[in-house]
Design a binder for these strands. Sequence first.
DNA 1: TTGAAAGCGCTACCAA
DNA 2: TTGGTAGCGCTTTCAA
Lengths: 325, 325
Amino acid sequence: MVTIKDVAKEAGVSVATVSRVLNENGYVGADTRKKVMKAMANLHYSPNEVARSLYKRESRLIGLLLPDITNPFFPQLARGVEDEVNKEGYRLLLGNSDEDVQKELDYIQTFVQNNVVGMVSATNTVDHELYNALQLPLVLLDRTTEDYPSVYSDGREGGRLAAKTILEKGARHITLMKGPAHVKPAQDRYKGAMEMLSEAEVDFSVFSTYSYSFEDATSWAKELFTKYPDTDAVIASNDIVGIAVLHEALKRGKRIPEDVQIIGYDDIPQCSLSYPALSTIRQPAYEMGRQAAQLLIKLIRKENDVDKTIQLPVQLVERSTTRKE
Amino acid sequence: MVTIKDVAKEAGVSVATVSRVLNENGYVGADTRKKVMKAMANLHYSPNEVARSLYKRESRLIGLLLPDITNPFFPQLARGVEDEVNKEGYRLLLGNSDEDVQKELDYIQTFVQNNVVGMVSATNTVDHELYNALQLPLVLLDRTTEDYPSVYSDGREGGRLAAKTILEKGARHITLMKGPAHVKPAQDRYKGAMEMLSEAEVDFSVFSTYSYSFEDATSWAKELFTKYPDTDAVIASNDIVGIAVLHEALKRGKRIPEDVQIIGYDDIPQCSLSYPALSTIRQPAYEMGRQAAQLLIKLIRKENDVDKTIQLPVQLVERSTTRKE
DNA sequence: TTGAAAGCGCTACCAA
DNA sequence: TTGGTAGCGCTTTCAA
């Protein structure tokens, strides 16, 4: 490993001088700079971030905590924060919590042990005591809360929009799927849809689900049609479940969207790959990730007048599982 | 921040002693140990990994380099390595390279700057000069090569299996999709299928694709049926493309699997969510990730007699896009 | 069985 | 404009 000392020797100057040209601060003569630069190039010198981090008490690392990258909504989110964070020279320490508080704790500990400068968390279990104790800039992603800076999309509006769409397209027997209780954004959209449905004059049923896993999605779908066989429209709790419902309907010989309309939520990439392509409410996941990163970086830099709550708009994407009016 | 010094003071011992109980090495008296433990608990002490890393010249971090986590095959892989690595107390520094050599370089630099103990790379652009210069334990994932430790699945066999399956089920006009040229595993499976097809007495066409993106998949599918309208079986380059082909076929009024059979590759989770559910060749992605992590850790520990090339078996998953014989 | 102290690579203060 | 050096928090020798 080539250190700052080696560079100093090669250039015939002191380590202090090398440090100065490295960090572009303090006075350093033009030709001294040149000598040092040359020495650095010769030796392929690259500063040791660990040593820097130790002294400055902060690294160029940012912690990203996710529930599970395996869930298709999160890779987009993650990519958004990564790309944005990279722009500013930061890198990501990644953790999947599986909604397990212990794992979350462990990761947070790792983050501080490694001097991360900030963290973004897309976890559902915001342990307030824990996060309050945290001395780090933190932004919550895909979560709405008063207590911490956060970026999220308008779940209530999304739910309303989903319901409104289904309503306008003449559904008579709507089944509203309620996502897992501990997933806050799922509850928001549920409430939004609920509001809209309650105001309208239609029959509807509520079908509760307790997970978002691929494996379970198919079972929920089966159960739904068994329980509510005359359903002619379902507002799914997310796209995965929506696609499962779609295929279950197809299996049962229903025509889509003539007999059953379906609207999903999220707009994960594979929506357009379902057949018929799933209509859905789009959350701008990649953009959410980017904005979360931007916000975090502003917080890290202690900028003034930063808006600590960013709500991104949600959008109807009409594809082929809703009627064309 | 509470440091080892604070603990030492609280316990009335020296920092050296605290360090000893922390690392469970060297002699330390039973009651001294107890005092120290208590002090650590009182102060909620958690050692600074950065300081440790600086002294030992290695962190508890492992670098993971991926092409793009947004591609549904990779989250599984990533999760596999994360889970395994966590078991041994390591954490992940994550990077997406987008198959861009410069980004890859930058990430690798970050990895060494942060004293990672090893890295796993699932990138296609193995720049040998670069990797050779690297002084780190490295394992290649989803890549077959003689030059570095690697874990991958048997692509050639997978290709053969896909072709064999299609052949046995009575296809007459097969279209074999060839994946992007720079993606080595895609070429392996292509070659395998090609071998099998060449030996058989059937007509077949080769259709070349240059990307794996969601957006492009649909275009490939359209183009395929325009170019080869009498195709009655397609061996897709991966599941995404397979699903796109499936839906394009459906759009064109073909019955699946009666008129057209389709076989994918990878077995990403959303396969079972397509309709009809996509038959495919399964790569054990999660397991591949785990094994890569295990191998890397063995390498890090300089264990002897470790098998540096791990080939995992591939497996036919018959669902509904291939005939039942 | 314990403590003092050097040193990991770097930054930043103070002096020259 | 430069260099010497203390010190970031930890581990590990060496001595006691």
